[in-house]
Nucleic acid binder design. Structure first.
Lengths: 196, 196
DNA sequence: ACGACACGACACGGTACGTTCCGTTTCCGC
DNA sequence: GCGGAAACGGAACGTACCGTGTCGTGTCGT
């Protein structure tokens, strides 16, 4: 997220205040009212300072959101791939269901279509690593014989996350635990069943 | 989409010019540069006229996009549910892959998080009806014995469309026909396979 | 100690917003 | 036909936020 003047002289105080204000404003007034000027005012910081370290408000919120997501959606390995996927997806869904993180991520996604750099950063810093972790967990289930050897694991990840994104973007009411369990079951079934 | 002054005196000429200009500008300069002012200037129309009939530029493009999508993604019934779903999803993916429709829909989706009315209109006028059609086609396949009686059809639709939205929003390279076929196969398998 | 540099502050031009006013054109009802 | 309501195009308004530039202050590394 840090863009240019790689320096140790950066004010950690300002950095924290900016990230915190960005999330706070997102909770209080919604992503649309989070502007660089509002963040600067709330954090007691100059706009210049924000622009020095982040290219856009989306990048600021991406940094803040990434930390929260990583904490909320660990990849456990209890030996039961179904249970592990359920708790993982449930963590993501739960995080997205509460301000400021749900609105923040919706806002970040909304910027991607006109902000190539942000889209690249989101994929490289958040999505791709998480997808790789998910594939790793599925591969481990393969080794334990819970998933057939030839299964299309990348597709499985997209079938898991696809509906989560679909509902979040379209702002349909969030999934409950049972819906998530059904989804996970279906994805695992699709890997196990023979082609037709 | 028509919001208020229900009247037959509306200028059809202006309406068409506005929708056309919105799509043209989207092709030429990208969704971000489609502004109400730009549409008005390009269409030779007053801003007031646009605001009189549509609440936002997203609503204008939703109206233009909806027409195109309905034409591009018919629900056929050849008796082969797999083939019909493949061609249906392929139609949607193909439409999203070309300007102005891909960028236009990405732009529309990007407005949902801060525009409750647009989100409601998108669901009511585009998403929900199409989902119902898809469920109807799946139900017909059920009657023909291609899908088990107890299958979760709404979930199946989300598993089909989820990855399409996921990739479109994250701006991953679009799916080719083979990927789509694999996705459809997996979804159908997940409905047929026994619970685990 | 000193110089480089991040900092807060403030001001700038630019763009698009959504609204209002005005004068013109179109079309329905009488 | 004719009168009037209403939609129309055009122009201008104040507001908000953008991203950048400037300036003086303070602090940290050398």
């Amino acid at each position: 997220m840090i863009t240019s003047p790689s320096s140790v002289r950066r004010s950690e105080r300002s950095r924290r205040a900016i990230l915190r204000s960005a999330l706070d404003l997102c909770t209080e007034r919604g992503y649309g009212h989070v502007t660089i000027e509002a963040i600067a005012a709330d954090a007691g910081v100059s706009k210049k300072t924000i622009y020095r370290w982040w290219p856009s408000k989306g990048a600021v919120l991406l940094e803040a959101f990434t930390d929260a997501l990583i904490d909320a959606t660990p990849f456990t390995d209890t030996g039961d791939i179904g249970a592990d996927l359920r708790s993982h997806v449930a963590g993501a869904v739960k995080l997205l269901s509460v301000p400021p993180f749900g609105p923040a991520y919706a806002g970040i996604l909304s910027e991607l279509h006109h902000d190539d750099l942000l889209a690249q950063q989101l994929r490289e810093q958040l999505v791709d690593p998480r997808v790789e972790e998910a594939i790793g967990r599925l591969r481990s289930a393969q080794d334990q014989g819970q998933i057939p050897p030839g299964a299309d694991l990348p597709l499985a990840v997209e079938m898991l996350y696809g509906p989560v994104y679909y509902r979040h973007v379209l702002r349909k009411p969030v999934q409950d635990e049972e819906t998530i369990a059904t989804l996970v079951d279906h994805v695992l079934r699709s890997l196990r069943a023979p082609g037709y």
